[in-house]
């Protein structure tokens, strides 16, 4: 973990409520796709944990959905403004566990961390299939960005307005060796039940600190109590214990 000051390079809407923000600054604390940062916002007490979509030596990209006053304030921020961020948080996805053919399943604002993961898997020479799930056509984002990586992309819409009608679990390919997923918890449960191989899940929870100090986001797993922020957010399929 590192505390850094990032400068906003761009901050643009991708859909009515999802924004893409490009930040410039020190990314040396990031080691894996699927990690997150925790952003301090003027006038708000707690930081906002947001997953990293992609990062390089000069900065990173986040995609965030405006759901409350904090993210609404972020959406109003302009290029040149700065943010106090804690970087390199969480364990991230482990690409070493994957065989030759990876399946990526993203739902809504669970899609962003899969983009950096997809790039890493492609770089490692893996064959990647991606299924991106959204409620409706107007909410779809990053389809073109994934296609530009040269991977198989399927988009699903719950209302059938675009792509395959249904959920990501309605568009699973016949063959894959391992999967990675991120999305709302009902989707994660459906993925857990519909998949036939091992895989990794990225979870979300209300956090206090985001770096393992407060125990605000603990969950029970088959391998003991874990902090979503520090021991997660990525858990392996074999250790997940659904509470309800």
């Amino acid at each position: 973990m590192k505390q850094c000051i990032y400068t906003i390079q761009s901050n643009e809407p991708l859909t009515e409520s999802v924004y893409q923000m490009r930040l410039l600054g020190d990314t040396s604390a990031f080691t894996k796709p699927g990690q997150f940062l925790n952003i301090a916002l003027d006038g708000f007490f707690l930081r906002r944990p947001i997953s990293v979509c992609d990062y390089d030596e000069t900065g990173l990209t986040i995609l965030y959905k405006v759901v409350g006053k904090g993210t609404a304030q972020m959406a109003r921020m302009r290029p040149g403004e700065t943010l106090d961020v804690l970087t390199g948080l969480g364990n991230g996805y482990d690409t070493a566990k994957c065989g030759k053919h990876a399946l990526l399943l993203g739902g809504g604002v669970g899609v962003p961390p899969l983009y950096g993961l997809c790039k890493a898997l492609v770089f490692e020479g893996k064959h990647v299939s991606v299924v991106l799930g959204f409620n409706t056509k107007d909410e779809v984002f990053y389809e073109a960005e994934f296609r530009a990586l040269g991977v198989d992309v399927t988009v699903t819409n719950v209302d059938g307005s675009y792509g395959v009608k249904g959920f990501v679990t309605d568009a699973l390919p016949a063959q894959y060796d391992y999967f990675y997923t991120c999305g709302p918890e009902p989707m994660l449960k459906a993925v857990y039940n519909a998949t036939t191989t091992s895989g990794q899940f990225s979870f979300e929870e209300r956090m206090g600190c985001g770096f393992g100090a407060c125990m605000g986001c603990s969950c029970k797993t088959l391998t003991g109590t874990k902090r979503i922020c520090k021991d997660g957010p990525v858990l392996e399929k074999e250790e997940i214990l659904w509470e309800s």
Binding site: L46, R206, G208, M215, C217, S218
Partner: peptide
């Protein structure tokens, strides 16, 4: 273990 989440 403590309380169920959300805890914050």
């Amino acid at each position: 273990f403590g309380n169920p989440t959300p805890r914050i």
